[in-house]
Amino acid sequence: MKQDFFSRTDVRGALVGLAVGLVLALGLPFLPGVGAGLALRTLTVCAIYALAAAGVGVLYGRLGLVSIMQIGLVAVGGWATLRIYHATHLPFEVVMVLAALVTAVVGVLVGLPALRLSGLSLAIVTLMVAGALEVLVTYAGFPNGGNGFLGRVSGGTLAVIMPRPGLGQSDDEFFRYVGVVVVVVLALLRWLLMVRPGRTWAAIRQGEAGAVSLGVNTVAHRLLALAVTSAVTGVAGALLAAGSGILDPASFKAQQSVLLFATVLIGGAFSLLGAVIGGLFFYGMPQLLSTVGLDGNLVFVVLGLGLVQAVTTAQAGIAGQLAELWRRLRPRLWPRPRREVTV
């Protein structure tokens, strides 16, 4: 049985991904050119958004659910992080877990009514929530050490910055910190996809009637998926808050949620590699465009059209096309007889 487990292609793929992820997370700051300064800070944020992208990807790729409120949930996670930190001064790791729980609750509350109806109503409702959260965040602002529930300082008082976690003080260290957290969270997500919840989600995606007749409580399992992906997105919010110690409502506009959704579908919603590609597109591409002197708004045009193309033709996204390329190249690079898997 053990032997079997490691010979499964999905398990091997996950282990390879885990190893590559850890090497990148720990080794990237040594790389000349991208390992320091603005480039490293950009990559840090890209890695953080890969978590939010993974949330979108699991919902769409594994359950066929469309959630267009993910950046709003990042804001919720960030808000909860700052709020809890300023109230309690607990260690960042504890705050992060609490913020993830808060975000999970919000995600479930939003999805609860819509999930009973149809996929389209969830898309509509989450878009509405994205719009509502944008305005709420702009109105309430992010806590910065003030009094009251909203925690905003007023008058001449200086804003309090949340310090970075002890293990990630410098930019280098913080990148490694973020990298390890992202890899660990993605690994947990991958594991979840390979055990009972993942199996059940696959059955639900295949067909509602078939799943129910197997005894699956489809609403409960969809809610579980929303809770899990929202928690993961909440972690992204916490890391974002940790990076700068303070958050700006302008980063959490509703169109960012739509943009993230587009990048995930273009990157590939069926694998977590697609989520990483999505994160790079989402945050890295506008930065890249502006460094070469182009208007960052062109990203919307490119990714918007890319989304139309991804939906109508390339269902598996870039990650799917890479996997296909790999399947074709591998026999030529390492020719070997196919091993039969038996029990």
Binding site: R199, G210, V212, S213, L214, G215, V216, T218
Partner: peptide, 30 residues
């Protein structure tokens, strides 16, 4: 969704095997 636990099993005109899971995982799910 509680009827499977109660002891009901059902197959459909169109087989319901989940394509992205192994045969064993399909049965394991049940």
């Amino acid at each position: 969704h509680r009827r499977a636990r109660w002891g009901l099993r059902r197959s459909f005109q169109q087989e319901q095997v989940v394509r992205t899971l192994t045969a064993r995982e399909n049965v394991l799910l049940a």
